[in-house]
Design a protein around this nucleic acid. Sequence first.
RNA 1: GCGCGCAUAGCUCAGUUGGUUAGAGCGUCACAUUGACAUUGUGAAGGUCCGUGGUUCGAAUCCACGUGCGCGCACCA
Length: 1110
Amino acid sequence: MEKAYNHLNSEADIYKAWEESGAMRADETSNKPPFTIPLPPPNVTGELHLGHAAMLAIQDILTRYKKMQGHEVLWLPGTDHAAIATENVVIKHHGKQSREEWPSREDFMVDAKAFADEKHDNIVNQMKRMGSWLDWSREAYTFDEPRNFAVNRIFKDLYQDGLIERGYRLINWSVGAQSVLSDDELEWDEVKEPFFYIKCGKFIMGTVRPETKCANSPLIVHPDEDYVEFENSAGENFIVIKRLYDDKEKFFKTLNFLDADADYKVLKTTKGSDLVGEKFSAETYAGMRDFYVIADTVIDPEKGSGAMTISASHSADDYNLAKRWEKSPLSKGDLGGFMPPKDWFIQKIDFAGNMTEVAGPVAGFSVKKARNVSGKLLEEKGLLVGKDINYEHRVPLCYRSSCVVEPMISPQWFIMVEKEYTHALDGKTTLKRQMQAAVRGFENEDPAVQIIPERFNKEYFRWIDNLQDWCISRQIWWGHRIPVWYDEQQNIHLAEEQEIIFARHGESVGNRDSKVQGVDDPLTDKGRAHAQEMIEVLKSENVGVIVTGTSARNTETADIIANGLGVKVVHIEELSSYDTKDVAGMSIDDIGRVAAIKYCKENGKGEDFDVFVERLRIGLEKLKAVRSKGKIVFVTNRSIYSVLQVLRDGGDTSDIFEKRSKNSHLPHGVIDRWPIFQAPDLPNLRQDEDTLDTWFSSALWPFSTLGWPNNEAPDLQKFYNNAVNGQGTDVLETGWDILFFWVARMIMFGRYATNKFPFHTVYLHGMVTDEHGKKMSKSKGNGINPIDMIEEYGADPVRLALVIGSTPGQKIPIGPNKIKGYRNFVNKMWNATRFVGLQSADSETGAYERSVPTQPSADNLSLTDQWILSRLSTVCAEVKSSLEAYDISTAGDKIYHFVWGEFCDWYLEAAKVEPNIDVLRYVLAEILKLTHPLCPFITQQCWQELFSDSLIIEESFPSLSLENPEAVKQFTTVQNIVGAIRTLRAEKNLNPKDKIAAGIKTDEAHLKSASDLVKALANLSDLEVAAQAITPEHSATTIVDNLEIFVDIPFDADAEAARIEKLKTELSQKIAGLKGRLSNPSYTEKAPPKLVAETQAQLEQAESELQKLS
RNA sequence: GCGCGCAUAGCUCAGUUGGUUAGAGCGUCACAUUGACAUUGUGAAGGUCCGUGGUUCGAAUCCACGUGCGCGCACCA
């Protein structure tokens, strides 16, 4: 073994060995209890950052631990298509400004897909470098076909339940991204902008957005406040809220056009409610407009002038107010004919971020420019009566493009979270209620979902309780396109479970039974003639491709036809057994499905089936790639009547799939591997242009990856059915920043679609920061790339640094120093292994035999052996209970200190004096198993070096019952004695190399038997352990655990006396304190008796020790 | 404005239902260095547990108020 552990020599090979072992694949047929973690899929085009690394470390630890505990563990990997983020990156990657620069949407999608595919391996390989025990055989992608299938299915279900609606709503429009954003995608920025006071008739209203004050509007006052109408020296009349008029300082500061020295005449004072109904026309910067006074308590009487107008089309608050008033009888429907309701919702800004025609002089200007110009116009017209340039407020920005977000009214798709529907399990309910019940619990039931740390429950409820309909449509291209088609009348058509008919021509070309008999006959003359006939028949058709299996006869037939027509042949062996008549009229995907079903019926399910399906899929992909070239002609033989008959006669494919799914021999994934929702092949239908919010597909992740919507899928049955409370998966571990984006929505869709909440525990890790707790950012330059750290120090240290010393929900401070510290630990473990190897090696040859150690016999165990075995038992139990409680930090800390501070510092040192190789090997083996979940690489490497080539993860997690409290107590005394002698030696500045003599005054057998050990550890020349140990002439004295210890040390008599005096003082103080406590009757009466007894014992010991010193 | 969280050694943080002398890592200081361990060992120093008051036999821990920092939300026209 090398002197130092080199992770670069180990990690790649070890991971490869794990992958090749096949052990990473979870077995859905296993009888073991399942344990499932869905991996939060990182952005497929992204780079691994420390947040990912923390997530991977925590989940891997749980996964490995549960596997060693005997669970059938599935940690399911995948990547996310990250709609908006990826679309922006693709545009930038091609050096373009917008997606419109591509010739077509399809072209853009091709480029985007190529980009995502190219980037995919990068992030996957980075995930592997963390040592992640992921089941790559089940890797999924949020934008692959099975996930698209699931997305389309739930969309259809939700739509049919009335929970998805399309409608005009006020949405957040990102002018830069040209797309709607959800409320959660906004980033708020604090800005200072001028606040304008504008004259509106006699009223004065305030706004930061003067450019929007260009249209007819209701003018809102507070109903319960008094308003003062006054006249200035120029004879102009104004109305402001009385509070403002009375507060002269504020009054003149606000309305800074007024002269504080001038006299103002109050004409009248009116209550706000009495102003209601007043109609007037007034000058705006854009010309004369109509206003109508209404009263509403949204007016804050402490702020501004006490009046405002609204832009219902461009402000969420105004929109809500207008919506409320639209229905209110007070508005008299259309404000008495004066102001039609449509005037409430005038569009002043268009989707490019420019002013519309209503803005008159600034029409066509950008909002920013219009704000400046309208301000100037107001000033010119004398309408600007005040301006506060120090006004601060928050504006929404697009979280991706950091550009301005304008509230706009636009047609979008929504999920109705408060609409009642009937759920199979929960009866009449709403999505919101179901989300609440997940964490709060249904009536008389415990909550199904537990959030760690618990305080996030509050955050969750605050969000859910205020939840509004979820806008799911996005005006981008990279994403799941909304599976809805419109006809010319704008009626909505949902996709049906049927596909385009394209293969409609074919003829049998041979003896269909030959293959059944195992004979692959050459093509007969008749067959050749038939093939020539086919050419003639097909000449008039637009044939694009010939498809055939691989039998000699079919291949020859296909070649003849293809040559005759000048088209290509595609070989798909898996389709060899079709009769062309039977596939005629079927879609490619249906053909695939039926082929798979048939294969399964004949050969059963197994690994071969997976291979078959995969090859079939590849063949069908080839077919799809060329189908646009023309019709497809199958050249095959042999039919599968039993299945196809149903298809032909019944015509209802869902029927046959129902039958299929009840057959337990049939495979998972057959239906799911191909989308069943396709555009209806009717020329006049037009698909919705929008795509779905990226979180829509993410929200299905825990079950769409396991075969849903096929509820019979074995993966779903095995792994979406956890052992704890029968909910979906077990743990969802992620950052708290996406609790709402993602976790809440998985809960929503999970309950809706699967009748289960998708996990029972939500573990929220904190944000990774630099070692000073500061957020990592590019601008600060304090970012750390986990891959660099893995390169330099290894994956194990990075994992330890991320999990030890951090608690859920709190930030995770990390820096190179912390990682370096754990690198040292990993190396320590390596060297401990090396030491054990050397100890067990043949002294002549240096060779040792590898074997997995078993528990050593209880005979002939020294005190040290008993102690380490006892401590090992205790630590294993502690680590286990910490991990069960998801307290990984404590588990790691316990291991760290046990391995370094106890096993290496004491047991290995003792082993140099009194070796017991069996115990040594056994304890090390158990330590490696114990540490494996946290440090998979070093433990595997050490395991291989000393014990076996097997995978250490296949071992059971250690659980021992060799506790021996008496041995622990006795050994602790040994440790204390050694420590005390070392301290004395250091205090006297003695060279640690120099051997000295010492004595311990005691008769206890275990100390006598440990005297060689003490001698070695404390580097003593001589040690006398006896009840009457002779005190050396020049000796320092100290007391340990009520034992007198003499150390023969050259010393200064005065200094020694002072030291003893100090010890005595400390003891006296302690005694006084203990006595004080014991003499307090309320303590002896009320404190637990055990505690009082302990205090008494301490007092006695301290008194005894003091006596010995005197 | 409302809400949540945090405040413990020079730094970053643990600290269970209140219970001996409040802990760890890093850093600092001293000594050692042919060793399983260049990545090591031994020892030491270092704390008004943010402040004030309260509950209690007993408070870092529970309560109230205050101070400072961080975060979230918000009908700020």
